[in-house]
Write a protein that binds this DNA or RNA. Structure first.
Length: 205
DNA sequence: CGGATTTGACCCGCGC
DNA sequence: GCGCGGGTCAAATCCG
């Protein structure tokens, strides 16, 4: 039990699976968390969801348990979960949307950090916050701001160890990471230059 | 002024 | 069937 299993309470989700120890990251507060960005940023097409390398067997179990079998569309693109929310707009007929049980790849990891929000290179918009049972700290809900991207993440501080922040990602980005591209572009340019240089030197030799 | 955040209300699934 | 807890919506508010 992470915090406490709550005998009677409903556990709708089987507790975000943490990556196995090696993959789990526990960066110290002083250092920038070292994520496995490569795996995070890998574009995963809907078809290939299940052979995600970083996924532990537990996670695959989880993916199966959450009923992904039926929806192959999955993966954030076809969501429209809140597709049309009854035009009315009055409080009365608010939210008639049915949440379909979407199964998207989810993975959680812990970071030891003072600030809840770790900069993963994507832009997130907060859309909710809930107090969680048996936890003094609320859980925050974020959504990727990219138009076509439907990735969500939850951020929550552990009640047991308040220096640890648990971030749960749901879905995969279908667009490149802005910051990463920004950071990578000069490197790519240099690589191009180097390769050109190498070509010309080879010709000279 | 536009986008992001806050926050209370609503909806839904699950256990009893 | 009811209550609880989690997830989401959307109006209000904040901020650059």
């Amino acid at each position: 039990m992470e915090d406490s299993p709550q005998g009677g309470s409903s556990q709708q989700q089987p507790e975000p699976q943490l990556l196995p120890a090696p993959a789990r990251l526990l960066a110290s507060a002083s250092q920038v968390p070292q994520l496995d960005w490569a795996s995070l940023l890998l574009p995963r097409v809907p078809g290939s969801l299940h052979d995600v390398g970083a996924m532990s067997s537990q996670q695959q179990e989880m993916a199966g348990a959450s009923g992904c079998s039926s929806s192959t569309a999955g993966d954030g693109d076809g969501e429209t979960e809140a597709g049309e929310k009854s035009g009315g707009g009055t409080k009365g007929d608010k939210k008639k949307t049915k949440k379909k049980k979407v199964s998207r790849p989810r993975f959680a990891f812990q970071t030891r950090s003072e600030n809840d929000i770790l900069d993963d290179g994507y832009r997130w918009r907060k859309y909710g916050q809930k107090s969680v049972k048996n936890s003094a700290y609320p859980r925050s809900y974020y959504r990727c701001t990219h138009h076509t991207c439907n990735v969500k993440k939850q951020v929550q501080r552990l009640a047991r160890d308040t220096s640890i922040v648990v971030t749960t990602y749901e879905g995969v980005h279908n667009h490149p990471c802005e910051k990463l591209m920004e950071a990578l572009s000069p490197i790519l340019k240099q690589l191009q230059l180097l390769s050109q240089l190498q070509c010309s030197t080879n010709q000279l030799i």
